[in-house]
Each structure stands twice: as structure tokens, then as C-alpha cells.
Simulated scan of single mutants.
Amino acid sequence: MKKPEANTQQEKAEIEQLSQAELVELVLGLQKIIEELKEKLAIATGKSRTNSKTSSQPPALDLIQKSEKAKVSAEEEPKKKPGGQPGHQGKNRKGFGRIDRYEISNPEICNWCGSRELSEVISLQTQQVACLVAKPIEVVEYQTQSCKCLECGGVVRGSLPEGIVAGQDLNINLQALLVWLGNYGHLSYQKQQELIGELGAIEIGTGTLQKTNQRVAEAVEPTINDLWEWATHRPNVHVDETLRVRDGSQGMVMDR
């Protein structure tokens, strides 16, 4: 809305009556107001360089500012479209390397006329899908039979298949999975019990999990010791927060 002309003339007359010092103060005040308005406009449009660390503005205003790096990259490089880029050599999925079972779907009725008189197969479409089955863990009872030799009279008994240990409730593959989940996946015994219950609808006691972990630890201990002995005699040893090796020539430290 425009100010009335009379008010404008009155303000002009009042300004003309001001001294030089008063005019300087007025100009400086207006300049300060202009700078503040510029900064507010820059914040609103995401172009401000100030933030809560470099000024007194609240941290909430930092959220609407775009990063300078993102701004530069956006100006220098055009935005790429999603998907394969020009010149990229695509790769087609070739399956999983094995097929555990087949499921064949045959049409029983014509969707067009309802007839059940259908010809032999004229084409076949395949699709390989990895599925999580209802019970990936199966419980097997192994029966080892004993027989008597008709020549010498000796009694012989069948042997357990590979991966099955006499007196142990879990085969070595399942034991390895549990040890991986506990030591590498950092799953507690309770969570391991819940997972096995979901996968195989079976219950595994905490004592079984503890003994399994202990057995595997004892089984790999000789190999770990050999690796430890080998690593301490290497001229160059990797250093991180979990493995530090002392080398005589380089003064490095290894913690076990």
C-alpha cells in the first residue's frame, strides 16, 4: 500500500532538518537493517554462509541451509538419471549356480473360452528364485546297524556320515553357524535360541551352545597359534585397535 503523499512530504521535510551527524546515524541504522534483511533472505533461500557456530542464530536454522560442497558439486556436475549410465556395460543375472528342486506350473483351463482341451507344451518360461523355506533345519535320526560276519563271526557296525559326530546333537554345519552368529554376528545365546527356533522349530539349550562354542574354540586353537607364530616373525605387520604386534626392528606391539 502506497503512503499518502502528504506523509511522504512531511518525512522529507523532517529529514532535511537533520544535522549531518544525525543523517550519518540514520544512514548507518538503515544499512544495518538492510544487512539483516539480506541475511534473513539468504537463510530462507539456503544461500547463507553463517550458521549457529559462526553467529548467534539458533541451530534450527542450520537445517534449511544447503551445504557448500553439495552446491558446488551440483553446479559443476549435472544431475545423473537413476539406472545404468551411458557407456556402462550391463550384466545379466545368470542364476545361483544350483537348483534344489523344480516346480512346474501347467495351465488347466483356457482363459479365453474356458475349454480344458489344451495342446502339448509349446513354450517354457523359467525363473530361478532363492526362497526361505518353512523349516531349513531338519531333524534326522541316524541308525547305525550292526551285522555279524558269516566268515569270521566278528560284529561290524555302520559308520555315521560325514559331518555327524557321535554323541553330539548338532551336525558340524549347524555348529559352525552358531559359532559364527555368536562370535562374528555378536548374537547372545538367547537370540541364537530364538533364531534356531524360527528356522527349525526346535529348542537348543544354553549348555549345548556353550559346549559348541568351546569345542570349536579348541578345534581352531592350533591353527590360531600357528598363525600367531607366523605373524610375529613377519617384517611388516598390520596394526589396528585389535591386533598390535611387536617387531624387533620396527618396535611394534601385538596384543592378544
Rank of each mutant, 00 (worst) to 15 (best):
R157C: 12
I122R: 11
E14M: 08
M252H: 15
G248E: 15
I34E: 12
K53Q: 07
L187Y: 11
P161G: 08
I64T: 04
R116E: 05
S105D: 12
E22L: 03
P4Y: 04
S159M: 14
N7G: 02
G197W: 02
C110D: 02
Q9R: 08
S67W: 01
N111M: 04
L209V: 02
K12G: 11
Q57E: 08
K80A: 06
E39P: 00
E203Y: 09
E141G: 11
C110A: 06
K38L: 14
E141V: 11
A201V: 09
G84C: 10
T212R: 00
A176V: 09
E14R: 08
N51F: 04
Y184Q: 11
I34R: 15
P235Q: 02
L209P: 02
A166E: 14
Q128K: 04
Y102K: 09
V27N: 04
L150T: 07
Q9D: 07
I137G: 04
I196Q: 00
L18E: 00
W228G: 14
S115G: 00
L150C: 01
N213C: 09
C149D: 03
Q20G: 08
V140W: 13
K2R: 12
E120D: 01
P59I: 00
L209H: 02
W230S: 10
E162I: 14
G95F: 00
D255L: 12
V133R: 03
W112L: 10
G197I: 06
R157H: 10
Y189G: 03
G251K: 06
A166S: 15
E221I: 01
C152P: 04
K91C: 05
P222D: 07
T54M: 00
E203L: 05
K80D: 05
T8Y: 10
Q89I: 11
Q214C: 05
Q127F: 03
G205D: 03
A6S: 04
T126N: 06
E77M: 07
T50I: 15
A166M: 11
Q65H: 06
A166H: 09
L209S: 01
A201G: 07
I34F: 08
R93N: 03
